[in-house]
Amino acid sequence: MNITVRVWRQKNADDKGKMVTYGVENVSEHMSFLEMLDVLNEQLTLSGDDPIAFDHDCREGICGACGVVINGQAHGPQTTTTCQLHMRSFEDGAVIDIEPWRAGAFPVVKDLVVDRGAFDRIIQAGGFISAPTGSAPEANNLPVPKEDADHAFESATCIGCGACVAACPNGSGMLFTAAKITHLGLLPQGQPERDSRVIGMIEQHDHEGFGGCTNIGECTSSCPKGIPLDTISRLNRDLLGALAKGKA
């Protein structure tokens, strides 16, 4: 198949940036979306142009490095990561618009690459259980109901790609934050730091310049790992509890 892509090109953080149109020929439907970009980049390189910069690494949907907005949708038309999106999802002759994640907290580095360091800093603000190495008790001393463990796992599958932020019209990082709050908050090990965790992470979330949640659910619908929306409600509950205890 032959397609046309319109790609956001921006040399660096200071550049204004614009959409640029390229044609890509002989695209196989079995190619992944990133492999299509590889083919385009080979073309660009040979013609002496600057190839398009995009983040990617594992290409199996788990590292969370890749992620672009395709035709206005984070990770494109399917709920999966960009690397797991295949060209069979598009028609021959399609015009595909490719843009970086847009959010105040995710400044563009180059072309489709953005800086998601804000997510790391949210984790730093409390997204962990303080368990110094070597201090752990025997693992089976602390049974965890299977249901809780499964739900915790569900939230822990977040890959930190940032699609939730890109999809949210408010540029909110609430689903990312809530996924971690839920993962750790559901486990008995996570209880001692539950209040300080939610307070620290929310403060950092806002400090990074993410917007607030308006409960419209675009994040969950775009999340390649299907992080459930009720995690946000759980975060709200936890913060309310912590504030009521005067922990802030």
């Binding site: 459930p228 709200n236 309310l240």
Partner: peptide
Amino acid sequence: SALTTLGQNHSSTR
């Protein structure tokens, strides 16, 4: 939205 904000949503999608 108000009830969700107050922590009362238990559903995985909107």
